[in-house]
Design a protein around this nucleic acid. Structure first.
Length: 553
RNA sequence: UGCCCGAUAGUAUAAGGGUAGUACAACUGAUUUUGGUUCAGUAUGUCGUGGUUCGAAUCCAUGUCGGGCAACCA
């Protein structure tokens, strides 16, 4: 059976264009503004733009849309490049809208000469007023009557720095009565005496998005300029510029941006979280930034798979976070090394086990025999998870309880004989016996137990810091929730366990490794780790059928 | 009440006039030395109303609902 995947609407357009001969190959672009870090929403756009070019044998430019020097920085340029590379994509050309400032200036002069642009001295308030409303046409002011020569001179003077910020703008002359507000003589150049991260102080006038983006596309001969829905009304202006400038006819297509439950997808809000200290930087593992997710332990292939599964369409959407979690688990399950780590220890003493130790083999990954085995020390005193013992077991609980037997992973079956408590009645120790014939891999005991626990030998345990993350927001649809988005921050999104007990094999592992702490979740080494101190981030929990059972009651 | 975009299970996304399918989520069960994985199965859907047609999610009309548009942001 063929399992050809159906095409999304953009792929359909491209295939038609290729088939009809409109284009012989395609060129796309990813056009970030370097004013913040990339997030998972950008990943969707990156996968789309680069993925299309890859699929149809075209190319993709990385173009920084750097037309607003007051918000843009080189730091962001570097992080964006890092993130795209990490996601697994290679751009054909690294470009900047600021490369085209001279050309763009020329385009503006062309418009002036054609009588299609004029310098306006009005304040932004006046311009807004004259714009009218969606139902009331706007009006032109006296500046619109300036001669071509006057406009040319004034625009040159603007460039020469003769005017203060905000004192003049260049406007395209289109239609003050257009039902599309963007066509009511839009501002295309404004004065900003600001230092630009690439052009320095060469310019004090900068083009607006609408007078830079489409032209940049045209200059680069972008065949399919793909952007998000909010740019739909801009398309008329995009085309107007192309037609009146007579430049390469790039075409704009719009798709619905990604929204994810329990997260925000706005650079402005993300920046706020960073600046106000709600998180520890752009790469905080709780952030929906690419760098945050990377630090958290997400793999690039999981993110690509996610972007593939969510599809591309024009309707607004809010994707279940669980789909992202599914994609990471699916990937990590295949590659993560299994290790045993106890988060909240309860001591188990095996009363019939001799002094000393033995080393037991345990598979690194049951899904991948090629991953091999490691040796784990076993001894008389162990730690198990406190939640894996119940003095009076709940129904369907098949972990350790008085008189009950469980398997210790890769080791023996033990039976709980006695519970030791302190003066306050807190359980301090559980005393068990083990069944020597039940050794893992050589079990002749004939005993079947339902539960298998992870454990660590007390004498051999190494301590590690473990950071557990929960969702950053408490509501599903953060962007549309009542009140300020910060009202919905989950104060318990980070739990630090300073002293978890880990099997010693973890000491030898390296930063690139992914782990599954058995029965606990997927983890990866954090950059805060030092030779003397291991720090792990929980990428995602394991699916927890027991927790579900407990919740049902 | 101007213009533009959209509407298919809980969430996404297919079906392009001919059996409404897939994934995630949910629920059952089997397997399991991870209550993981894997496997098998169940339930839930075409926004309303007219029309065209032998036949409509699909075409037409109309209504409803949701979103966007009046930054010297992108």
């Amino acid at each position: 059976m063929s399992e050809e995947k159906s095409l999304n609407f953009i792929e359909e357009i491209i295939e038609e264009d290729l088939k009809s001969g409109k284009h012989s190959s395609i060129t796309t672009r990813f056009p970030p503004e370097p004013n913040g870090y990339l997030h998972i929403g950008h990943a969707k756009s990156i996968c789309l733009n680069f993925g299309l070019a890859k699929k149809y044998g075209g190319q993709t430019n990385l173009r920084f849309d750097d037309t607003n020097p007051t918000t843009e920085e080189t730091e962001y340029v570097e992080s964006i490049k890092d993130d795209i590379r990490w996601l697994g994509f290679a751009w054909s050309n690294e470009l900047y809208a600021s490369n085209y400032f001279e050309q763009l200036y020329g385009f503006a002069v062309t418009l002036i000469k054609k009588g299609l642009a004029y310098v306006d001295d009005s304040s932004s308030e006046e311009i807004a007023e004259q714009k009218g409303t969606p139902t009331v046409p706007g009006t032109r002011n006296r500046f619109a009557d300036r001669t071509m020569e006057e406009n040319l001179q004034l625009f040159a003077d603007m460039r020469a720095g003769k005017f203060a910020d905000g004192s003049k703008v260049l406007r395209a002359r289109i239609d003050m009565a257009s039902p599309n507000m963007l066509l009511r003589d839009p501002i295309i150049y404004r004065i900003k005496h600001a230092h630009h991260h690439r052009t320095g102080d060469n310019w004090c006038i900068y083009p607006m998005y609408d007078f830079a983006h489409g032209q940049s596309d045209a200059i680069e001969k972008i065949t399919h300029s793909i952007c998000t829905l909010e740019f739909i009304p801009h398309r008329d202006l995009y085309n107007w510029c192309i037609e009146n400038l007579g430049i390469y006819p790039s075409r704009q297509y719009e798709f619905a941006r990604l929204n994810l439950t329990y997260t925000i997808m706005s650079k402005r809000k993300l920046l706020q979280l960073v600046n106000e200290g709600h998180v520890n930087g752009w790469d905080d593992p709780r952030m929906s930034t690419i760098s945050g997710m990377r630090r958290r332990g997400y793999t690039a292939s999981a993110i690509r798979e996610f972007c593939d599964r969510i599809g591309v369409a024009k309707r607004e959407n809010l994707i279940d976070f669980s789909l992202l979690e599914f994609c990471v688990r699916e990937d990590l399950n295949k590659i993560a090394l299994r290790r045993m780590v106890v988060f909240d220890p309860l001591k188990v003493v095996i009363t019939n086990y001799p002094e000393g130790e033995e080393w037991l083999a345990s598979e690194n990954n049951p899904e991948d025999p090629a991953a091999g085995h490691r040796e784990i020390p076993f001894s008389r005193e162990l730690y198990i998870e406190r939640e894996d013992f119940m003095e009076t077991p709940a129904k369907k609980y098949f972990r350790l309880a008085p008189g009950m037997m469980v398997r210790l992973k890769s080791a023996y079956i033990i039976k709980c004989e006695e519970v030791v408590k302190d003066v306050n009645g807190n359980i301090t120790e559980v005393r068990c016996t083990y069944i020597p014939e039940s050794k893992s891999g050589a079990d002749t005991s004939g005993i079947n137990v339902k539960g298998t626990l992870h454990w660590v030998s007390v004498a051999h345990a190494v301590t590690a810091e473990v950071r557990l993350y929960d969702r950053l927001f408490k509501v599903e649809d953060v962007a549309n929730a009542e009140g300020d988005f910060k009202d919905h921050i989950n104060e318990a999104s980070l739990t630090v366990l300073p002293n978890a007990y880990a099997e010693p094999a973890l000491l030898n592992d390296t930063a690139d490794d992914r782990y599954q702490f058995i029965r606990k979740g997927y983890f990866s080494l954090d950059k805060d780790s030092t030779p003397g101190k291991l720090v792990f981030n929980r990428t995602v929990t394991l699916k927890d059928g027991w927790a579900k059972e407990v919740k049902k009651g």
